[in-house]
Design a protein around this nucleic acid. Structure first.
Length: 582
RNA sequence: CGGGGUGUAGCUCAGUUCGGUUAGAGUGCUAGUCUCGGGUACUAGAGGUCGGAGGUUCGAAUCCUCUCACCCCGACCA
């Protein structure tokens, strides 16, 4: 019997100092989790029940589409990860260890390698395809900086699914199925999200989308257009500029300008009396020991992910002394003209061919004016490498875009053949020829669903769990523990609800009413049943719906029926929203 | 990895500048009395390697050296 008097529920009145977001604070105060070390948490009974409910919903939705649950090892051998080159590519994020014989192992941060190994072992023919396999597993990533409690942990729970197809159309279909599954899962869990275009990053592949929960506490940035529905992660988002550089008829020849000690765009534009957008900003970086000069209009910023995509490799900022050696000037006076050995110049789309700009002269205290792109330097590589700013135009409909913070709830990828090619996972087609499997991979962070639900569904008093994932369906609050009539009624209702298969918590603690009400609100059980003063006086018990605050006083005899009815309504509302997914 | 900060009771934090009784408060916990529909009141009590090691000193939470952990900003981040 779930009596609160013998139940681990360490609620807190004060906010623990480790809390850095509202959701994190509530999860700590409601006694859901406990931190063990940086980015690693225990789940206490209440929190674990929520996790189990989320798992259950994920399983139900994956199984609806005939996806098959498996379980892959956390402990992986180095050799497997060398096949995909990710033993190196993952860098410090990979948790590594050695066994007693000195062999290298890692703790799986994701499972493409293992699943591809399974696929190459067992899939032989196109006749067996498509298939999708998934697992719910603990992942390990040695994050440089764990954050926001359970949002960015070094150990976390992920549902990861992998699809195998023999055609692009098949992959499209498998991907689309997962999109529907994901939306159904989030809807059932009561989460709001937007589906945005995303960068594939280290995963590789041909396309990916992220499910983003918009919240000020998020660590990602997304760009959305309310008018046409455009939505993208800032890493890939595009926009239309509010102002475009004008082409100049009969431009002058380049000419040095003395700009003593004017090292910033702001300083130069003020000194010369021109707009920042009349300047070109030069950013010098090193990619695989090759110098790259990124050129962008003076009033704009370079987006690091976009630049990485444009270069096609990771890069690092240059050290000050490297800049001087390369360019012959300090960082503030770099420009596209006057190189001894020319770097690869990547030009942002904001730079207009035939317009006239001012930029660094590659000698200290000098800039050059009348620089004309196309005439004075190569426009061979023109890419979008710009940070999108609030208030710029939507790339589709040109209405003003909005920038929001967000948490990534899930990510779906069309992987293509990156892993199947690298690891030799092939099938035989109808012609008898071998081809690499076409793969997709799909991930959901369970803790993020939990935290996201808390973030969205809470008020000044505490959490308001969506009924589908709440740790308990009902809490019975019996006041005056010495009144046997109250205790008997509570026990009676408790047992009947249990008999109907419901999860019920009974607060039988000998505390003042206020303490028990506060706790019930804080931990967010959807439906409260209070048995106290009104029962002694009028024989009535009181139902409180946490979400609305509504209270109903009714006879104990009809309480069960009423409680079940309210509960069904709360559950159905969420499940119905899943059926709206198209 | 760079910069900054914090470690004192289960939790939130004083005390450290300028070394000096038995290291404090609130909350939580225990016992008792009271109270019983929104964190009740009173009384009594338990609870501490002051993150760790070494050093200076008659004497160290306090000063010095080293070290560990955690947090924040940045870098990084399927």
């Amino acid at each position: 019997m779930m009596k609160l008097s013998h139940f681990l529920m360490p609620t807190l009145k004060e906010v623990p100092s480790e809390a850095d977001t509202r959701a994190h604070s509530l999860m700590l105060r409601a006694g859901l989790i406990r931190r063990l070390t940086a980015g690693v948490h225990s789940f206490l009974p209440l929190g674990w029940r929520v996790m189990k409910n989320i798992e259950r919903i994920i399983r139900e939705e994956q199984n609806r589409f005939d996806c098959q649950e498996i379980n892959m090892p956390v402990l992986n051998p180095r050799e497997l990860w060398e096949e995909s080159n990710r033993w190196t590519d993952f860098g410090d994020v990979l948790f590594r260890l050695k066994d007693r014989r000195g062999r290298d192992l890692c703790l799986g941060p994701t499972h493409e390698e293992v699943i591809t190994d399974l696929a190459r072992s067992f899939i032989t023919s196109y006749r067996e395809l498509p298939q999708t396999w998934y697992q719910i597993q603990t992942k390990f990533r040695d994050e440089a900086r764990p954050r926001a409690g359970v949002i960015r942990g070094r150990q976390f729970t992920m549902m990861d699914a992998y699809s195998f197809d023999y055609s692009q159309e098949g992959l499209d279909k498998s991907y689309e199925n997962q999109r529907i599954i994901y939306e159904r899962i989030y809807n059932r869990c009561g989460l709001e999200y937007s589906l945005v275009g995303a960068s594939s990053g280290l995963m590789g592949g041909t396309g990916s989308q992220e499910f983003m929960q918009l919240t000020p506490d998020g660590e990602d940035t997304v760009i959305t257009c309310e008018k046409c529905g455009y939505a993208a992660n800032s890493e890939v988002a595009q926009s239309r500029l509010n102002q475009v550089s004008e082409v100049v008829e009969n431009p002058h020849e380049p000419e040095d300008v003395h700009t003593p000690d004017k090292k910033t765009i702001a300083a130069v534009s003020e000194f010369l009396g021109v707009r920042p957008m009349d300047l070109m900003k030069s950013v010098l970086v090193m990619a695989d020991d090759k110098p790259v000069l990124a050129l962008i209009r003076g009033d704009l910023e370079v987006n690091e992910t976009k630049l990485m995509t444009a270069i096609g490799a990771e890069y690092r900022a240059m050290e000050p002394h490297e800049i001087v050696e390369m360019a012959g000037a300090d960082a503030g006076f770099i420009g596209p003209i006057g190189w001894k050995t020319k770097p690869w110049i990547i030009v942002d789309e904001s730079i207009v061919e035939g317009a006239s700009y001012i930029s660094g002269a590659n000698k200290n205290d000098y800039h050059i004016k009348n620089i004309v792109p196309g005439r004075d330097f190569s426009m061979k590589t023109v890419k979008d490498i710009r940070v999108v700013k609030d208030g710029e135009g939507c790339p589709n409909c040109d209405s003003k875009i909005k920038i929001s913070r967000a948490v990534e709830l899930g990510h779906i990828f069309k992987l293509g053949t990156k892993y199947s090619k690298a690891m030799g996972a092939k099938y035989t087609d109808s012609e008898g020829a071998d081809n690499p499997l076409i793969m997709g991979c799909y991930g959901i962070g369970l803790e993020r669903i939990m935290s996201g639900a808390v973030d969205t569904h809470a008020d000044d008093f505490g959490i308001i769990w969506p009924a589908t994932i709440a740790p308990f369906d009902f809490i019975i609050i019996s006041l005056m523990q010495t009144e046997s009539s109250i205790m008997e009624t509570a026990k009676n209702i408790y047992e009947k609800l249990k008999g109907l298969g419901k999860d019920v918590l009974w607060d039988n603690r000998e505390y003042n009413p206020g303490v028990k009400f506060k706790d019930a609100d804080l931990i967010g059980i959807p439906i409260h049943l209070v048995i106290g003063k009104n029962f002694l006086k009028d024989g009535l018990v009181e139902i409180k719906i946490r979400k609305t605050g509504e209270r109903r006083k009714i006879k104990p005899k009809v309480a069960i029926e009423e409680l079940m009815k309210i509960h069904h309504e709360l559950i159905n509302e969420l499940n119905d929203s899943a059926d709206q997914v198209k």
